[in-house]
């Protein structure tokens, strides 16, 4: 037993030595990873402290769970949480079904010209920046000089209302602009799955007199369901993550009741008036921890249900 151990370590040492050049390559990335990903995790301790610029991360006084308790008692707690969930669940549902629908429809279509054109057109917006997307929306939904304003004026004869300022319109604007931007790109994976589906099955079904719609129902949809389930589950693990940039850019003082999500609230607590780094970090940390729990449990479910998981 002892001998075996010794041999094991000897050969382990040998294997490590043999990989020396690979470790050399990895040295820089490892330093990078530690500094830029793991060091900030230690910075999370300020969520349990009263951060002062003088004391810094390590020198500030501990306050225990005070910041978390403050957040749970904050009157904005439920509002930001509900706003976050509203926007993300809405995106999750729409963002899952629209690409599937698009892929199925494109797959069914025999007209190659339209197929190619629509495919190309739906990919384009994916690479437009969020700033430009919001800029386009600001311009086009302008009630006075935007195309939306022009259309409403032409049809009703009245000046249009400012959609961007209506709180209830915010989730719809957020989600559907996201669909416009990403549905095409997100459908690629389903289109590829459909292209790889069993052609014999289609032929057999055709011979038996199945209509195209029946083949969609009994062949195409079952083909993409595994992919859809995995993506849905993985995305479900991110429901507490609403991108900061887009919400922040689309936000204004009029729609704030619906558009203040956790990430924008975190930003304002830190850099707005009455800047409080510790409180802000606590809110952010609450969000990340919930996310972590969600994605881990969802990953477990995914492993059980579909045999595929992130790790």
């Amino acid at each position: 037993m002892k001998k075996l151990n010794k041999n094991y370590y000897k050969s382990l040492g040998k294997r490590i030595y043999r990989g020396r050049q690979l470790y050399l390559l990895l040295a820089l990335p490892l330093i990078y990873m530690v500094v830029f990903s793991y060091v900030p995790m230690f910075g999370l301790q300020i969520a349990f402290k009263h951060y002062t610029f003088k004391g810094g991360i390590w020198g500030s006084d501990w306050v225990g769970l005070k910041n978390f308790i403050k957040f749970f008692g904050d009157r904005n707690f439920s509002t930001t949480l509900i706003n976050t969930l509203r926007v993300s669940l809405y995106s999750l549902v729409v963002g899952t079904f629209v690409p599937i629908f698009l892929a199925l429809a494109l797959n069914c279509l025999n007209h190659n010209g339209i197929k190619k054109t629509v495919q190309t057109l739906t990919y384009i917006p994916h690479f437009i920046s969020v700033v430009v997307l919001i800029g386009m929306m600001t311009q086009m939904f302008n009630p006075i000089v935007g195309i939306y304003g022009n259309i409403v004026q032409a049809i009703t004869g009245h000046r249009a209302v400012d959609i961007l300022g209506i709180p209830k319109a915010f989730p719809h604007l957020y989600v559907w602009s996201g669909v416009w931007q990403n549905a095409g790109f997100n459908s690629i994976i389903y289109i590829a799955a459909l292209a790889g589906s069993d052609q014999d099955l289609h032929e057999a079904a055709q011979i038996d007199g199945a209509t195209r719609l029946q083949r969609v129902r009994y062949i195409d949809i079952p083909t993409i369901i595994p992919t859809a389930i995995i993506l849905l589950i993985l995305n479900a693990g991110k429901v507490m993550t609403v991108g900061f940039e887009k919400v922040f850019l689309l936000q204004n003082s009029l729609n704030i009741n619906y558009s203040e999500v956790i990430s924008t609230y975190v930003y304002k607590q830190a850099f707005g008036s009455g800047s409080n780094f510790s409180y802000s970090t606590a809110i952010g940390m609450f969000n990340s921890v919930v996310n972590l729990i969600l994605i881990t449990s969802v990953n477990k479910i995914s492993k059980k249900v579909s045999d595929s998981s992130l790790w």
């Binding site: 900061f244 830190a270 780094f277 802000s280 970090t281 972590l292």
Partner: peptide, 11 residues
Amino acid sequence: FGGGMIPNYLL
């Protein structure tokens, strides 16, 4: 998982 906005800023 990550540090989030403020710890990154401080880094």
